[in-house]
């Protein structure tokens, strides 16, 4: 008998707590697979955020450090400075990274901190019950934008990948999505390149992953995937925004 599918060693036996149709699970798996394939699990220290992925430390099969809301890049900086030979990554959502933690992410990039950040953008605060995020789409209704997000009042959705790409210290910046198998493969490739960047001491790397929130969007899992493609991707274009190899 041959093994056709095996769960990655990068994840623990613990069952994910994520809602049906939430793509956090896929993104966890991609990161875990990349770490396993690059033989980095014994060397990796992950930093978990505050947000739906707050329990990420239970799932990744490597040393994990839980951070305060938004501070994952600062915590990862502390870990990386203490252990420069190890592989350090932060896993953050959009409330964490694009709102309360903008200073930390911008300055980690600005210092060229040699860490990898996985940024999960689902245009909403999931954990706290579906409030507006800086990444919420115009017109999108959330518990704190009950009439739909209005740019005049709350600005237009923030494009983090583009913003960080303007920073000199940022080495690899790419936006991906996991709404279908083709894009899942591309996302994995980007995550791998980001970790390679860190291994080659190229500095800060970040992969933004467009993700779903069926529960707080109020949609079926399938409709949520469609919503990413139809509403998010046109505003958040996929692709690479910074790559050390292309610039050389």
């Amino acid at each position: 008998m041959s093994v056709v599918f095996e769960k990655t060693k990068g994840l623990t036996e613990k069952e994910f707590h994520y809602c049906p149709g939430c793509t956090h699970g896929i993104i966890h798996r991609l990161v875990a697979e990349v770490l396993e394939e690059m033989d980095l699990l014994g060397d990796a220290i992950g930093v978990a955020p505050v947000g739906c992925a707050v329990l990420a430390y239970d799932y990744f099969n490597c040393d994990m450090h839980e951070a305060a809301h938004g501070r994952a890049p600062a915590v990862a900086t502390g870990v990386k400075r203490a252990l420069p030979e190890k592989t350090v990554f932060a896993y953050q959502g959009d409330g964490d990274l694009a709102s309360i933690g903008t200073a930390e992410i911008v300055h980690a990039a600005h210092r060229g901190e040699n860490i990898t950040v996985i940024f999960v953008n689902n245009a909403i605060y999931g954990m706290t019950g579906g409030q507006m995020a800086p990444t919420t789409m115009i017109g999108q209704r959330t518990t704190t934008s009950p009439f739909g997000r209005n740019a005049e009042q709350t600005g237009a959705p923030i494009r983090i990948a583009e913003m960080l790409a303007t920073i000199e210290g940022a080495s690899f910046i790419e936006r991906t999505s996991v709404h279908n198998p083709v894009h899942i493969r591309k996302a994995k490739k980007a995550i791998r390149t980001a970790f390679e960047c860190q291994q080659n001491r190229k500095g800060f790397s970040m992969v933004e992953v467009l993700s779903t929130c069926p529960t707080n969007w109020g949609m079926s899992p399938l409709a949520s995937l469609g919503w990413v493609a139809e509403n998010m991707i046109p505003y958040y274009p996929l692709g690479n925004f910074r790559n050390p190899d292309k610039e050389a």
């Binding site: 809602c19 049906p20 149709g21 019950g129 579906g130 518990t143 009950p146 069926p214 529960t215 707080n216 969007w217 109020g218 949609m219 079926s220 899992p221 399938l222 409709a223 949520s224």
Partner: peptide, 11 residues
């Protein structure tokens, strides 16, 4: 707001 979650089970 709380009813929104029903949307993901409607189908």
């Amino acid at each position: 707001v709380g009813a929104r979650v029903l949307g993901s089970f409607r189908h």
